[in-house]
Design a binder for these strands. Structure first.
Lengths: 219, 219, 219, 219
DNA sequence: AATGAATGAGGGTTCATTCAT
DNA sequence: TATGAATGAACCCTCATTCAT
């Protein structure tokens, strides 16, 4: 966020923020990222403030609720993941584009494990963050899925939400260093399963009875 | 766990446990199951005691740590899931056996969502419960995987641990009623991906470079 | 409160309370009385606990809300004031009985100024304590008023509630030692005003237009 | 309080206050009146500042203590009540003048309930505001009482302070809409009691033993 | 002068855990 | 053994007050 100018005091508009305010906000964000990554999303806000080297009141001024802090911390991360999907839209092989997004996702998550925990919590609590993140990521991943489905290369009964949840769920269930290779393996299996397999399709459908056959996705 | 007899520490004699002790232990377990399923694994122990109709002290006597209580609550559940795998070992189609286990697992979990949360917590904390559960379930699911791999019907670079984590992770990332159909869809995709696909295999291997090619599993 | 016996543990009835629990409860009450009298009804509960020499948790166990503590502290006081009215019902001169109750009330309040503050707060917040106290005292004072009105000795357009509020209001608005004499003087004036004054009545009524002429009181 | 000019501390010269300072001071006063009337005298100063549309720092500059703000807010109100008494000094019937002042007081207070709470608080804390208000109002009401006493129409053992406290106390002890009629009734009783009643006087004195018989008032 | 950010003390509340009965 | 009282650490949150801009 960059403030360039400020308005006259009587018009009640944006003003140049104080330098220390900007610095503190940034410090709190950094600290929160670290603390949440280490102690999970239920870590104490006081711990965050302490690590940031600011008073607890300052933390509250910038982020009145825990949710607000989460959001500020994770919104950017979510957006990066989402932009990655945008770029992959132009890749030649649609299925491969999806696989690459997922693999990049693992790398990405590897450096911010706390985000996954926060998302998991958000899923449970049905919070703002959840709504925002899922909408954003769903849109992104959805475009990849749609392209592949349109090309007839991929089964169409998997929604972006399904995929996202599976992806984050897999990541969440790990806590050991080196977990990535496990998830990468699983994702490969996954993408292989997504490919349309003419010979197999009939059988699969017969035995599995998907609840919503090829549900028309909203986007 | 049922106490039939135990040694008295001072007299070195065998004694029967008091009837009320046995009854209370059972009550606490029932209450804990209910409370953890409803309020998540962080629910207050006092709530458990109250629901069990015993004093908090009694709860602590039987289960000195929260972990102990978790373990006692979920050990049986885990064992049931595990036994299911034993039975499926005799099914004709090994891949189908796996699929059936996973689908049963969804049904099972649907009635005890708390267990998944507890496992997720256990994963994070690297606790006893985790060790026990994973060992037990890994053994069970491993035998299914091994049979399929031995029959040449399934790729061999997915470990039972991978599979379990993916399974529980998917379940965990849901909170809406009706989440099962989503997970079932994903599991189908998964199993399809696991089948050996001669034409595809080469390509997959070439592009995916699995970290541990067909790692020899410990069990 | 005296516990004499306790019931068998299986019938889930009253038990003999632990000696320390009784002692602590009493200590907290004493401390609360002192602290509320000194610092007003908004004094910190931690201060009460500290003065009582118990942990804050103990205070909360005995009195889960501030209200509960108030009530325990002031219920007895209110009852004493109320019983005094009962006794005066048998006095010969009804008007004098009222006057004597009021004068005794001043003496009573003089030793527990905190009660008045608590009542004042209770009036503002419309709390339980208020409801209880006013019902109790209203009934008591109402019987004195009724007797006097029935004897034709006193105007009937003043309700017990009116009277109580005036009484406590006068007491509340003082903070200096020796305030009692001031209130006593005012109460004399008051009671004089309550006497039926034939010659004056017409004039008073003409000019004052009481909102509810001789409102039938509920009790 | 209106600044017309002030001395600059360094140059020892007279200066006009900045226009915005004057405006802000006025805004804060208006806001404080509203906020205190609504939320009681313990309302947060930040709420006042926000309503006034100024920074909290500005509020503190103009009114370094909460007391200062109270005083500024209520000084004018007190003066209005006091002036009313001045005007009534010329009424023909001294007792009726008193009654009319009290009745007007009720109306007045009805629109600024916060003032009563502030005064009550001030009584408890023995603050500046209390001193000022009581001196001012005492003088005003005292002149009404004196006139009546001099005319032999009213007992002389009630001081203006007594009267004021009783008046405000009655008002304070109410929180329901429509409380005015109750207070008006009580005030009528009061004034009736104040009238000299030859036949009754002896009896009253005999039984009541006033602490300070007809205390010579200071003013 | 005005602003609003920073601070931290202070109070409320919960709960895991220990211990007296 | 069973009970539930006692304890206090830990958190959350608010706000009066100070201070940098």
């Amino acid at each position: 966020m960059i403030y360039i100018a400020w308005m006259d005091e009587h018009t009640d508009q944006t003003r140049k923020p104080r330098a220390d305010a900007v610095r503190n906000r940034e410090r709190v964000l950094e600290a929160a990222k670290a603390v949440f990554n280490a102690g999970g999303p239920e870590a104490s806000l006081e711990a965050v403030a302490k690590r940031a080297g600011v008073g607890i009141g300052t933390l509250y001024r910038h982020f009145p609720t825990r949710e607000d802090l989460f959001e500020a911390v994770y919104r950017r991360e979510v957006e990066q993941l989402s932009e990655l999907a945008e770029q992959l839209k132009n890749a030649s092989d649609p299925v491969d584009a999806l696989r690459r997004w997922l693999r990049s996702g693992v790398e990405f998550v590897a450096t911010k494990k706390g985000m996954v925990a926060a998302l998991a919590l958000a899923v449970q609590s049905g919070s703002e963050l959840h709504a925002f993140s899922f909408e954003r990521l769903t849109k992104a991943i959805g475009s990849l899925l749609d392209r592949a489905a349109a090309a007839g290369a991929m089964r169409a009964d998997v929604s972006p939400e399904d995929l996202l949840r599976a992806f984050f769920g897999m990541c969440y269930m790990h806590d050991q260093p080196g977990w990535q290779s496990s998830v990468l393996r699983m994702l490969d299996v996954f993408v292989d399963g997504l490919r349309v397999q003419p010979a197999m399709k009939a059988k699969v459908r017969a035995s599995a009875k998907p609840a919503k056959p090829a549900a028309k996705r909203k986007r």
